[in-house]
Design a protein around this nucleic acid. Structure first.
Lengths: 186, 186
DNA sequence: TTAAGGGGAGACCAATCGGTCTACTCTATG
DNA sequence: CATAGAGTAGACCGATTGGTCTCCCCTTAA
């Protein structure tokens, strides 16, 4: 593993578990055994490292989620598979995402305001919603695809938040049941 | 306004907008014009001040929410009023809660791990869920009151998260529509 | 064999962190 | 009037922050 990747992985783990401002550069160096000069050779600043971490997490998460959804089929099937994937995540059955500690982008977003980080977090969420919407065209629902995608996103965000702070590990199952209702023919 | 209250209000505003670790004691003092000695006369540490801030926000939020729900009626009416209240919050129509910047407890929780703060945040969420559940006994639904309260909480958390990071200010309306479906007779 | 150069270890820097302390003022009560 | 308590200003403390720089080793090529 290259030094930059090593730093990104370690930084993500520490940021995710302890918060971004709470973790100093020296802690990351100590954890990885990398020299300070090497870090600043590859990244201009802590902020630059953080941006790389956000990009890394965005790719890892999106790759995992899209793979899970596509594997389940198309349309409604893919969307409902999202909640099964979340359930696995909450129960720490997804190694590549590390032990569940909530949504990294929610946490990162909360530590900054009017900052590049906020834009990156918002974009990550928008990408997910857009992917959901892409799987919804032509589905039976009372809602238009765009509104339906937003509602699904509300359920997704709610499940993550509820599982994290309240420790309700079944939140994904509840959210899935509500998602099913959105597709009801009536 | 007493000095402690002044400090708590200012600290909350700064923590809420910028994150907790990102705001130093000196910044709070500068903003309030209070002397450092006075702060440490009333609070043992920054952590103690933070705890007071969390208690303050918990009370403010719960008082506002319960009042809004009770004013709307009982049972299902009260629960659905929750989402109307959220909608007002998202649109900055609730002065006492300050301009909407997401859930303070979610943000605070994300900046700590294995810390008193986490317990306080979890308790705040539990209090809300318990209050919701108390309004649900005897309501018509496919779900038991406890499960129904958890599902409503998922919708509530999702609406807040979605409104905050994605900037979807209509998230409360979407969540309300899904909540209505939970009470469907079928 | 030797010279050159890139990267690693970590000493070092100014700034800031949370927190303490001294010296002084104001106000309210006995 | 005297005294006590709450307040202010801000110097000061050690620790830690993000970031720079120097020294040295180790590889590589002539």
């Amino acid at each position: 593993m290259t030094k930059p990747d090593l730093l990104i992985h370690a930084a993500f783990k520490l940021f995710y578990e302890n918060g971004i401002h709470a973790v100093g550069i020296n802690r990351i160096l100590q954890e990885t055994g990398v020299a300070k000069k090497t870090l600043y050779h590859h990244f201009a600043s802590k902020e630059a490292l953080l941006e790389a971490v956000l990009v890394y997490r965005d790719q890892t998460f999106m790759d995992w989620l899209t793979a899970r959804m596509m594997a389940a089929g198309e349309g409604k099937l893919a969307v409902l598979a999202l909640f099964d994937a979340l359930d696995d995540w909450f129960h720490d059955r997804v190694e590549v995402l590390l032990p569940f500690k909530g949504c990294f982008f929610m946490k990162a977003n909360g530590e900054f305001s009017d900052h590049i980080v906020n834009g990156l977090c918002q974009r990550h969420k928008q990408n997910i919603t857009a992917f959901i919407q892409a799987n919804l065209v032509g589905q039976v629902s009372k809602l238009a695809p765009a509104d339906l995608a937003q509602s699904i996103s509300v359920l997704k965000e709610g499940a993550i938040a509820q599982a994290y702070v309240a420790g309700d590990l079944n939140a994904a199952k509840r959210a899935k049941a509500m998602a099913v209702a959105l597709f009801a023919e009536e």
